[in-house]
Amino acid sequence: MLTLECPYCGVQADETELSPGGEAHLKRFGPGSDIDDFEGYLFMRENPKGVHFERWRHAYGCGKWFLAARDTATLEVFGTYPAQTTEPPQALREAISAKRPGWRWRDFA
């Protein structure tokens, strides 16, 4: 059972007080968008073994959504950060690089 630190309230939250929200940093495609772009937005996911970025909500806590960087194989948590961003913070990316040299996730590295 995972623990993730909520970046808003600072609580080391147990998985039972969190709700998962799937992959992070999806770019929304709306009306008028290309069918392939829309399909990618709705259905295509990274599903990697290794470094992954995902959405969580501190549902039974402060209610805020946040993002987490995690290794899907070892469950190591590299960090959590507020959801109001379109890309992972630079410091976090460097921290991941220190532990997983050469990692890549979509366009991020």
Partner: peptide, 13 residues
């Protein structure tokens, strides 16, 4: 409520 919060916090923050 959660659905609204999701869109407000994560897309149209």
């Amino acid at each position: 409520h959660g659905h609204m919060e999701d869109w407000l916090q994560c897309e149209w923050w």
